[in-house]
């Protein structure tokens, strides 16, 4: 009988460890998900590359794709935000530039953070930015208007069936700690990519 009990306690302890490990796995799903997103483009997050990584011979001269720029402002942020031009025709492999105009409509200085999202999701795998206002958070003085630049490359490996893609930004109000966290995440993802 006692032997049975001892064995049972051992089994229970092992299973308890499994349960704790699975709790940890729940948290592990967060980085796993982020990696999966980078690999498959699940949530349309975009990649970042440095200027030197762009190779001129990658440019596909015969192909043009349409890139649309969509802008959103979270209701908690008293800003207006628009793309200067709604769409652009670009050659895959070439560095292109888009300008966005943002204005702080309030009487306070406000910090905002733009979050990008690309549709179709698959396109986000081939969408890389060399420079973007979304890499850091933006502080706008009361009533300030700012022109912001995105430089990006649509990879020449972009599948043929994708002819139009949308780069969408949503500006959120950034509380200080959230803003820093985002930057840290960005840096991490740069490292992972690099």
């Amino acid at each position: 009988m006692n032997l049975m009990k001892n064995n049972a306690t051992k089994t229970a302890k092992k299973l308890g460890l499994v349960a704790v490990a699975m709790f940890g796995f729940g948290y592990l799903m967060v980085p796993i998900y982020n990696v999966l997103c980078e690999v498959t483009g699940i949530n349309g997050k975009t990649g970042q590359i440095s200027q030197s990584e762009v190779k001129i011979e990658d440019v596909d001269p015969d192909r043009l794709v349409t890139v649309e720029f969509d802008t959103n402002v979270n209701p908690n942020l008293p800003w207006t935000f628009k793309a200067k031009k709604f769409k652009q025709r670009v050659r895959p492999g070439e560095i292109a530039e888009a300008i966005f105009i943002v204005k702080n409509e309030s009487t306070n200085s406000v910090v905002g953070q733009a979050i990008p999202s690309v549709a179709p999701e698959l396109a986000s795998l081939f969408f890389n930015k060399t420079e973007c206002f979304c890499f850091v958070n933006q502080t706008l003085a009361p009533g300030e208007t700012k022109e912001m630049v995105v430089r990006y490359v649509v990879g020449s490996e972009l599948p043929e069936k994708i002819t139009t893609m949308t780069l969408s930004y949503t500006f959120f109000k950034a509380s200080e700690d959230v803003a820093t966290k985002t930057i840290i995440d960005q840096k991490k993802s740069i490292k992972n990519n690099g």
Partner: peptide, 16 residues
């Protein structure tokens, strides 16, 4: 329904 699909509208992300 007459268009044949539905799609989630998710804050911060766009679906096409």
């Amino acid at each position: 329904p007459a268009l044949g699909w539905k799609r989630d509208a998710i804050p911060g992300f766009i679906n096409d």
